[in-house]
Amino acid sequence: MQKNREFNVWIVEDDVMFKESLEDLMNVYNEFNLVHSVDSVEKAIQVFGVKEKPDIILQDIGLPGLSGIEAISIYKKLYPEVFIIILTIFDDDERVFDAIKAGADGYLLKRTPGTEIVNGMKQVLNGGASISPPIAKKMMRMLVNPSTKKKTESVLTDRELVILKYLVDGLTINAVAEKLIISRHTVDTHTKNIYRKLHVHNRINLVSVALKKGLI
């Protein structure tokens, strides 16, 4: 996350009270510039290319018309570099994994305190993942098979496996570089190779695949 820079935020939420609370929250923090706030995916799509490009979108799932999950792939096609955090009341297995598979960069429950939502946004902008603790526990429970002791043979090098563990633990690229006493560029190169080899596109996908393959 670059210092002294405002990040453009879009909100897509049909619950009026919650949308207004998010708007108020964004207006408190100087690093966030609330550009657009609407109650449907269709309205958000209409202003892509008209309003200032979003750096991060706070997105509900249960919306009139297109769902928040359907919207993720649309947003990513329009702006591949945009970060998307799902904010929802739903914590069921199907919706969680549908959102992750679609490319969500974070998944937070609406009961998450405002300060933690902001911290989650900063984590995502720093290249991390933002997941509510109950969702993280659910992912672990669903993905880890206690009876499977043998790990899948890894396609990653030893150094990539070390970096993978740090990434899954939530460390930023800079923090990993400091831990391993190597350059940020080297860590970034290894990270791109890890993503390519595991066929993932963001940190949440990485956690999911790493757990499923028994790499961590």
Rank of each mutant, 00 (worst) to 15 (best):
L63D: 00
E70N: 02
K76V: 02
I72N: 13
V124E: 14
G128P: 13
K51I: 02
V82A: 11
D98W: 11
A102P: 08
I89N: 14
D55Y: 07
G103T: 03
G114M: 07
E94Q: 06
L58K: 08
I72S: 12
T115W: 04
P64W: 15
A104P: 03
V96P: 09
A102N: 05
G103K: 07
L63P: 05
D92L: 07
I86W: 09
V96F: 13
P113C: 02
V124Q: 09
L125V: 03
N119Y: 15
D60A: 02
E81H: 09
L78C: 02
P113M: 02
E52W: 00
L108H: 14
I74A: 04
K53I: 07
D91K: 13
A104L: 05
I100C: 11
G68A: 00
G68H: 00
Q46V: 04
L125H: 04
E52Q: 10
S67Q: 04
K53N: 09
A129R: 14
L87R: 10
G62T: 07
G49D: 08
V124Y: 12
I69S: 02
G62I: 11
G65D: 04
I85E: 06
E81W: 01
I89L: 15
I61Y: 00
L66F: 11
I69Y: 08
G103A: 04
L109Q: 13
M121D: 15
I69R: 06
Y107M: 08
E81N: 10
V96E: 05
P113Q: 03
G103S: 04
I89P: 00
E81F: 05
D60C: 02
Q46S: 11
R111G: 14
D105C: 13
G68R: 00
T115L: 13
G120W: 06
K110H: 14
V124M: 12
F83D: 12
E70R: 01
N126W: 15
L109N: 11
A104K: 02
I45P: 07
L87W: 08
N119K: 15
I85F: 10
F83V: 00
Y79F: 15
T88G: 07
N119A: 15
I117H: 04
I56G: 08
G68P: 01
L125F: 09
I45Y: 12
I117R: 04
I61W: 01
